[in-house]
Design a protein around this nucleic acid. Structure first.
Lengths: 180, 180
DNA sequence: GCCATCATGTAATTAGTTACATGATTAG
DNA sequence: CTAATCATGTAACTAATTACATGATGGC
């Protein structure tokens, strides 16, 4: 692909391509997916999404497959887009670098005096527990369907991962002096 | 803090401040830590690190605490830096958004035909297993010390998380048609 | 009619990547 | 002596955030 961009800074492109390969949608819907179901993988705001969709359309990897009310346009992936996505998944070297502010915060917990430390862990525990519960509910909803949902495996992974985090935070809380 | 930057794009700043609060170091060493022990939390290249260290020094949050061979300078956190770091950890609203290309790739596995899918899962499994084994070894090294190491809790979390990932990938592999 | 939300975009700024550049030290 | 690595920086570019901006639709 010649239309600009680095080799390793292209994750948004493939996130969009992939999300639209699973299910066509508008830019607005994609922004919502980045806020919820995709939030543990990638985030992008609408101001980044719309220009990227335009570029991908121009490159022939996406196309407008429908128009709705408020001049909304639904995008879908093209055959060329599917080939590009497949090549990326199978052929390209994965970029394993991550950016996760929460992990930085947890890494630095040990610097805090016990009172601050306990307060921070309790806040983290509230947030992660809420996140975990949301995933458990999502998993139950998907299990209630009669067909296998494509998101089910990833939700399962996220449930287990967040369970590990809840357990770890509880242990850190117990190990902090002055905890009940 | 008035010295420029967004509210939510400041994670590098606090990652550096925190790493130097745990242990003073040079810019070069910090770049190495981002490549290894901090790689599951944040990544930054030296070209981003050096200017940021200069800014933090100018702001009085860091100071040069030693000079080595090849005109290397060791930075340490100041009292003001510790206060700033503590305030960030305790008072500021955490940014929960993540960027993790690997999760995008795993999310999109279901789009691939079985042969491609199996090949990709096997590659991921190799990479994650290697990563997991590295963490297990690191944990054993830390356990061999007579004192508690500050990184031990985070390594423990990473060990469990990567174990969950290895298990999940193995399940996905088994569930793919044509697998042994 | 009015307000919330849907829906899309652009402009200005900061963050991050890649490439370029240079010199010091040490191990062989 | 010479190649690898240590060590630090800048320049040019792309990516991402924040702020600004506008209009359509549907429910009340």
């Amino acid at each position: 692909m010649s239309i600009l961009s680095y080799d390793r800074g292209v994750s948004l492109r493939y996130a969009l391509l992939g999300m639209l390969a699973v299910q066509p949608g508008t830019g607005y819907e994609l922004a919502q997916r980045f806020d919820s179901s995709m939030s543990n993988a990638w985030y992008a705001s609408h101001s980044q999404i719309y220009p990227e969709l335009a570029k991908l359309c121009e490159a022939g990897l996406l196309e407008v497959v429908g128009q709705g009310p408020r001049r909304s346009r639904t995008f879908g992936i093209t055959e060329e887009g599917r080939r590009e996505l497949r090549d990326w998944l199978v052929e390209s070297e994965p970029n394993r670098s991550q950016r996760n502010e929460t992990t930085i915060r947890w890494f630095l917990l040990e610097l805090l005096p016990p009172d601050d430390r306990r307060a921070v862990i309790e806040r983290e525990l509230r947030d992660v527990t809420e996140y975990h519960q949301g995933l458990v509910n999502a998993a139950e909803s998907l299990d209630a369907l009669e067909h296998d949902h494509p998101f089910r495996p990833m939700v399962g992974l996220a449930v287990r991962t967040s369970q590990v985090m809840v357990d770890w935070l509880n242990e850190q809380l117990e190990a902090t002096p002055g905890s009940p």
